[in-house]
Each structure stands twice: as structure tokens, then as C-alpha cells.
Amino acid sequence: MGLFSFLKKKFSKKPDAATETYAKGMEKSRAAFASRLDELSKRYSSVNQAYFEELEQILIESDVGVDLSLRLIEKLLDASKEQKISEPGKINEMLIDEMFVSYATAGAVIKNEIQFAPEGPTVLLVVGVNGVGKTTSIAKLAYRYQKQGKSVLLVAGDTFRAGALEQLQVWADRLHCPIVLGKPNGDPASVAYDGAKYAKEHKIDLMIVDTAGRLQTKANLMQELGKINRVLAKEIPGAPHESFLIIDATTGQNGVLQAKAFKDVTPLTGIVITKMDGTSKGGIILSIRDELGVPVRFVGLGEKMEDLQEFDLDKYLYGLLLGDKA
């Protein structure tokens, strides 16, 4: 059974709330990808070089990435020749299968939920450039784990951006969770130290550390994050246990470049994609996984707190390909 048929069968019954969130949040991406695939297959009675060129263009314009798009098309060309397949519908189904395989086999083993330390506080370091939805994502993650019964501490390590401390304070008040604040333009590592002390003293389950997003000063950022990592590791064994990069889906391939730059300056255990509901280029998830080998752990599919969803490859492909057509 091909993946396309598998998805149709799996989601043939009324989808659950999470699946519906994916379907709704990926409407724009589905229109730009699945609808174009369907339209393309209707224009050709059999595939030829022109068909594959148009297919390649659809992939690239959906932000699957040039390198991955070329590899996928090359595999399809080889398979269609070897298996003597000329029907556009079957070629499209083979493409979906290859997209699934490319994600599942690239990089580290896929795990989504935060991996909690067996003892003491678990520390999540959050990085990302300004304007990608970093603070909101931190709040949504805090909300998610509060709902799971975890105690959460927010640490405002972005001491440089105007309004960053106040913004995180507002979320802490709304979530009724403690927050450790530093002084404006203060040393972020010092704030991280204070946060670690508080987390240990109050037996906090999850400590989420915000950081500055000044990627344009790469050397300074590397030094700053390195110092934060060292301070955290000294105070809490194994910290930071997780390091998430926040990327705005609407930035497309610029987001991939940001991911590469951050991976150069600090170890990353996962990526959170925000504003997926606002883009028609849902292929960015495949592109990031392919180029960095870092898994997407959560995806933002709307503005509500519950719209930050654990990344699920089946639901993602369902939202990208089928949605309300299943």
C-alpha cells in the first residue's frame, strides 16, 4: 500500500481534534501543493520530461528545497523508467512515498515531546531571531506542559531586545507560573544562573530559558550561548537537556539559512516551526530535516494555545495532501 492510500485509510473516519488542526492550519500549503499536483496530473495523459520539470517547480516553490527537490525528481525519473510507469497519478503517489522516506531517514531518531531528566529540573534553551514568535512559542510550550501536570519556570534571558522582559512577564502572569528576570542589557548567563538556582530550590520540573536573537553578530552570539550553556551545565547536570530553535514558516528558505547559522553556534535537539497556518510553503519542514538532520518537534498551526501541536509526520502529510478531501 502506497503512503497516499495509507493516509486515506488512516484518516477515513472523522479526524480527531489534532488532525483537524493540521487540516485547517495547512490549508494554504495544501492549495499551493496538493491542488497543483492534482491539476498537473489532469493536464497530462502520460508523464514526459515537461511533466517532471513542472513537478520539480512545484516542489521548489513549496520550499521543499532545491537539493531535495532535484533528488526526489531524479528518483522518480529512474523509477518510472525501471518500472515503466507513465500514469501521472501513480507518479504523484510515488513522490509522496519518497517525501515520507526522505524525512523519516534523515538525521537523528524522531522524538517530539521534551525528554525529561530522570532527576532534578529539565532545562529547555530556546533560540531564534527576533520576530519569529519565540516568546509566544515559549508560552505555548509552558502551557502544554502545565496541562501535563509539570511545574514550569520561565527565565527571561533576552535582556537586550526592548520589551522582551515585559513580554515574557505578561505570559508568566497569564499562565500563573514563576519567572526569573534580569536587568535590561544585563548578562544573560547571570539570569540563567539565577534561574537554575530557583529551579533547584523550588523543585521545578521544566525550566524554559529565553535567549537573545541577534544572529547578525554571530561571534558574539556564539560566545553568549556558550557561556549560558556552561553556567547551566555547572548548576544542573546535563543542562541544557533540550535546545529548540524557533523558525517562522513564512520566511521560507531564509528560515533554513537561519537554522544552519544557529546550528553552527549551539547544539540543537529540535526545531519549532511557527505560523505554518500563514504560509503556502509547507515544504520547509522537509527542507530543514534534509539539510540539517534536526527533527521538527512542534509546529504552530494557529493562534490559540492548543494550536502548537506535537509534530506528526502522518498528520502533516494528511494536512498537506488531503485535508477535508479524505
Rank of each mutant, 00 (worst) to 15 (best):
K281T: 04
L245W: 06
G270N: 10
K203T: 03
K197S: 12
A192Y: 09
M207I: 07
D210N: 10
I271T: 08
A233D: 00
M276V: 11
K263H: 09
N220R: 15
T217W: 10
G186Q: 04
M207L: 13
A199W: 10
K227C: 03
G252T: 09
T279N: 00
A233H: 08
Y198P: 12
T217I: 15
G282R: 11
K263I: 08
G195S: 07
G270I: 15
V191L: 02
P240N: 08
D194H: 04
R214N: 03
F244T: 12
E235N: 14
V272H: 03
T217C: 13
L257D: 00
G270P: 09
G252Y: 02
V272K: 07
A239V: 02
V231Q: 06
Y198S: 15
P237D: 10
G283V: 07
S243H: 14
T251R: 06
D248T: 13
A199N: 11
G283N: 09
G278M: 10
A192F: 04
Y193C: 13
K263C: 01
S190L: 10
Y193G: 10
T279E: 01
A261R: 11
Y193P: 11
K227P: 01
T269C: 04
G213W: 08
Q216G: 09
L221D: 08
K234E: 06
K260S: 00
I204T: 14
G252R: 06
G238R: 14
K281D: 00
M276G: 03
A219T: 14
D187T: 13
L268R: 06
L268S: 03
L245P: 07
N229G: 02
A192K: 12
K281L: 07
I236S: 02
G226C: 12
A192W: 10
G270T: 13
F244H: 13
Q223T: 13
K227N: 05
Q223W: 03
V265Y: 10
H241F: 06
V265E: 08
T269A: 00
A219E: 15
H241P: 01
K260N: 05
K200I: 05
D248C: 06
A261K: 09
G252V: 12
I247L: 07
K203M: 02
K203S: 03
G255E: 05
I204N: 08
S280C: 14
K203F: 01
I271A: 03
L268H: 04
K263Q: 10
T217G: 07
N229I: 08
H241I: 05
N254Q: 08
L257Y: 02
M222W: 11
I285R: 09
Q253M: 02
D264Y: 05
V272E: 03
